[in-house]
Nucleic acid binder design. Structure first.
Lengths: 378, 378
DNA sequence: CCGATCTGCCGAATCGGTTCGACTGACGAT
DNA sequence: ATCGTCAGTCGAACCGATTCGGCAGATCGG
């Protein structure tokens, strides 16, 4: 008998199938009244409101998000373009993703993901066309980035985490790798180191125009020159094994090097391991510093003196900027360049005796002494 | 003059504002014809199709996804419920997220994220109500999980990664921690170890009814009993420092322990470090094995003998199952319990002399010898 | 030469909301 | 008593697609 089957869908249908018209019918009012009762955009009598509310709760009604988005012209959804997962994402990137989602959720916004490399692909196109999202956050930006150009073309509001070579006219949030690596070098120079190595991200990434790679190198070169030091730099893969191999190579081919500055977070455990296997005790025999997520630096032994990347704050600010941009697309674009201070931990100290520069031979401790410098790095 | 301003929006408006009606007008046909030309669901003459195509390309038209979803009743979007980011997600979880997104993108589906804990929150409700997604994938499932109950209630198709205590009638993909840890124990027993420690996930997670934690403990206890071994288990936080501390404790309070089996991926570097600091050489003095993502196991020194978690395959299968379920909601639910084999690397070997069991005193190497056992572990 | 069939296209209804204009009483001010 | 105001409600248009029924004209068989 069809009656039994019908009952299942009739009474407490659990939210699917019921629409605003059904609510209106049950409450004995018009659809518009239900809508106004829900949005509060027009006055509805207390009695009516209660009746509608009861019906809504009874059948667990939720307005169809698509219909609403269609009429309102906005989706309450943000797009997030993440690097493709082929090579697993770095911890820092993943921190961003989680933080962006969290920040968006806090203001009742959803996040749509698109794993897209530098050249915009199908997934990326799907995300930005068809009014699927109100705005987009782009990650792992290249100095020349086709996706940024495409976004500009569409007119869809967007914010980048990282920035292109000429980021004029767009909103972005970035870490000032140039300054941060500069600070690392100065810190090491203050301690008396004269030969420093930079451990950068992979050669492929740098060759592809990945900003932080380039800017770290610039900052390194500038600071090394300023302090009259010897510097060498290495591009290595984002993995511990590469860090270990790189340390071996440095110790073998550049024995005069007494300190490493790294922007390659994933390689840190390997760097540490390589030094240890070579019998170098950190920080007594060798210093290590760089830029990394805080928990990453703290999980090393000894804990690493480093500029802590504030992923959560960056993500929150990116969401905030994007919302601003969505609200006022014509407002002048804002941006944020973060240069968090170096957190002193236990991985840096003066170089071994006989390797110190004259300037710092007085035996500076692991804390950074005040240092005279011609201009501020910021 | 308004002409100048008008031109900006008139000619190549870059996809925003243009709708199917505008295309129809420019091509001199009706809206339905444009729709049919696009979908191919009815015949359209070659000439007309070309004309429409030209107009579409000229103005870069993309159909509004919300309007389409509204009419079609499906959104071509999947929901993914991830653990909240408060404590950073484990590498394995992040692998899942990236893999799910990738797998979905491969079949032209978008993924909407919701960071929601065991108790369903606003973000979770937003995701599953209002027909925002066609189906949902749930991660980090508890043995008793309010979200699963809620999903059942809504009738929305869903698949869980992990499973509840009684997963009858739902689709899931899970790792057979019970079997895997059992295999680890058997492997260690075969090598001659008699005292083994299990390093589990955090006490809080296990107390909250996190399945893998419970099932790992069961599998451990069962295998230990079966082989007549001594076992002890430890719940520790998902971080290296906790692993290091735990090893210290084990070496101090349970000096008879010669091997560790771990399901706590994030603690592995600390476990390794703790052993090293205590002067134990792996695998000569101490063996370590467990369950972890492959790159995680390979990045350790020595590389860890472990059951490699196939995150990508799991994610792909989860998406596949979900699509099936969306297509046929009434079909009997399928599931997949994965028990990948243990990959032999270099972190396990016979226990130090004088600690071996009689059975394996013959000096087994680091590779697992064939072993007689009453029943298969699978 | 006429009716049947097919091709290609159009008009209108529809999905499920939001919102605008208008209508109805009740109420207060003049 | 009359006019204006206002709270409360309704009907209808609308957002931008899809899709069904139908209509014209071409084609074809008898």
């Amino acid at each position: 008998m069809p009656t039994v089957t019908a009952n299942r869908f009739d009474g407490l249908a659990g939210g699917d199938g019921v629409n605003i018209g059904e609510i209106a019918r049950r409450a004995g009012v018009s659809r518009s009244t239900v809508s106004y009762a829900l949005s509060g955009k027009r006055a509805v009598s207390e009695a009516t409101r209660r009746r509608i509310q009861e019906v809504i709760e009874e059948v667990d009604f939720r307005p169809n998000a698509n219909a609403r988005a269609l009429k309102e012209g906005r989706t309450r959804t943000l797009g997030l373009v993440i690097p493709p997962a082929q090579r697993h994402l770095t911890d820092m990137q993943l921190g961003f993703v989680a933080s962006v989602v969290e920040a968006a959720a806090r203001v009742d916004l959803d996040v749509l993901l698109s794993p897209s490399g530098a050249d915009h692909d199908r997934s990326f196109e799907r995300l930005i066309t068809g009014r699927r999202v109100d705005g987009v956050i782009l990650m792992e930006i290249r100095l020349e980035d086709a996706r940024v150009a495409r976004m500009r073309q569409t007119g869809l509001p967007f914010v980048t985490i990282g920035r292109t070579a000429h980021p004029d006219g767009i909103c972005w949030v970035d870490i000032d790798y140039e300054t941060l690596i500069g600070r690392c070098v100065h810190h090491l120079a203050d301690l008396g180191h004269r030969h420093i190595a930079l451990i950068n991200r992979s050669a492929g990434l740098v060759a592809a125009g990945y900003g932080p790679g380039h800017r770290a190198l610039h900052g390194f070169a500038a600071a090394v020159a300023q302090r009259g030091l010897q510097g060498s730099d290495f591009c290595i893969a984002d993995e511990p094994a590469a860090g270990e191999a790189c340390v071996e190579e440095i110790l073998a081919s550049r024995p005069e090097v007494t300190a490493i500055a790294s922007v390659n977070e994933a390689a840190l455990p390997g760097i540490q391991r390589g030094l240890q296997r070579a019998g170098r005790v950190v920080p007594r025999d060798f210093s290590v510093t760089g830029v990394a997520a805080r928990h990453w630096a703290e999980d090393l032994r000894p804990p690493m003196t480093a500029a802590d990347v504030p992923a959560l704050e960056m993500a929150q600010y990116a969401v905030e900027l994007l919302l601003e941009r969505i609200a006022q697309p014509e407002a002048p674009p804002r941006h944020l360049l973060l240069a968090p201070p170096i957190s002193l931990r236990d991985s840096t100290g003066p170089p071994p005796l006989g390797r110190r520069s004259a300037a710092a031979a007085g035996g500076a401790g692991p804390t950074s002494p005040p240092r005279p410098r011609p201009a501020a790095t910021g």
